[in-house]
Amino acid sequence: MTLTLLSAALYAFSLLCLGSFAALFSIRWPAVNLYLAEKEAHELLSLNFIKTPPKNSVFGRSYCPHCHHTLGWKDTIPLFSYCYLKGQCRYCAKAISAYYWRIEILFLITGLPLLWLPLSLYELILNTVIISALLSAAIIDYQHRLIPNECSGLAIAAALALNIGTPNLDASILGVLLGYAIVALLRECYLYYRNREGIGLGDAKLLAALGAWTYMESLFSILLYASLLAIVYTALYYKTGGQNIPFGPFLVISGIAHFY
């Protein structure tokens, strides 16, 4: 793919848009799923459920969390609207969280190096989808200890589509199966010996996605470096012990680093 200044600028803006959506998704998806889980639990127990549903669905219009005014397109241009409005809502002048632009910058930094790889437009789009799905999963797991099936499933589908018609398709499929099996086996062993859950199946699906993307031979390296990162993080931030840490972000960091 021929790289021009215009195409690079358009791609960079696309990454910012993906980051903006991911930031919104990481806030709304947990809220919607928590509401649905509580509703289902009440229905199973035949209890009344009167909790008000979230204001907007995952794909609803953006609005100010302070004044609840629906935002127009001029208020939601990634990064630029935040700078132009000086970090304030146009309608109530309350501060806009820096969370949004930080996620947008994260997507920009992580995805922009794809432009310098020898990829076709088809490969660029699918790799962008994979990285975006993985980052979204990592953000939500870090905040809520949950990994959306939507993120893992999208990454797996994009990785398999990337290898359709190539000699790597078998390795990609085996990466899915082996990635899931490794974590599922570790989970069962820990559950058997310690009588408690040590790692969730969300991590199994995430490693399956990484296996589909980077193939089965890379899985043990990804798992090793993710474990080392988790150990360092635990030593630095969880000195009291006894607390569960999300493993998904370390898998994603290790997987993306391995890909590059």
Rank of each mutant, 00 (worst) to 15 (best):
G72Q: 01
C83Y: 05
K74Y: 14
P65A: 08
I77Y: 01
P65N: 06
P78V: 10
F59G: 03
G72W: 01
I77K: 00
L85C: 06
C83T: 09
G87D: 15
A93L: 12
P65Q: 11
I77S: 09
V58I: 10
W73D: 03
C92T: 06
R90Q: 10
S81Y: 09
L85I: 02
H66N: 13
C92Q: 14
Y84L: 10
L85F: 05
L71R: 04
C64W: 07
I77H: 01
W73R: 09
T76P: 06
K74D: 14
C89K: 05
S62C: 07
Y82W: 04
P78G: 07
W73I: 12
L79Q: 06
K55V: 12
D75R: 06
P65M: 07
V58N: 03
F59P: 07
T76N: 14
C83M: 09
R90A: 07
L71H: 03
S57F: 12
S62R: 00
Y84E: 02
K74R: 14
G87R: 11
C64Y: 05
R61S: 15
T76Y: 09
W73Q: 10
F80W: 10
S81V: 03
C92P: 15
K86M: 09
F80L: 08
K74M: 14
F59M: 11
K74T: 14
C64T: 02
D75I: 07
S57H: 15
C89P: 04
Y84G: 03
G60I: 00
P78I: 00
C89D: 04
Y91M: 11
N56V: 13
K55L: 13
P78R: 03
V58Y: 02
W73V: 11
A93M: 10
S62A: 00
V58Q: 04
V58E: 06
F80N: 00
V58G: 00
C92I: 12
P65V: 08
C89N: 05
L71T: 08
Y63N: 03
Y91G: 10
N56A: 14
K86R: 13
K55G: 03
Y82K: 01
Y91D: 13
C64D: 01
Y63H: 11
P65E: 07
I77F: 02
Y63W: 09
H68T: 15
Y84H: 04
Y91P: 12
S81Q: 11
F59H: 04
K74P: 09
R90P: 07
L85D: 01
C89V: 09
S57D: 13
H69S: 13
H68W: 13
C64L: 02
W73F: 14
K86N: 08
Y82V: 03
C67I: 08
A93G: 10
K55E: 09
H66L: 00
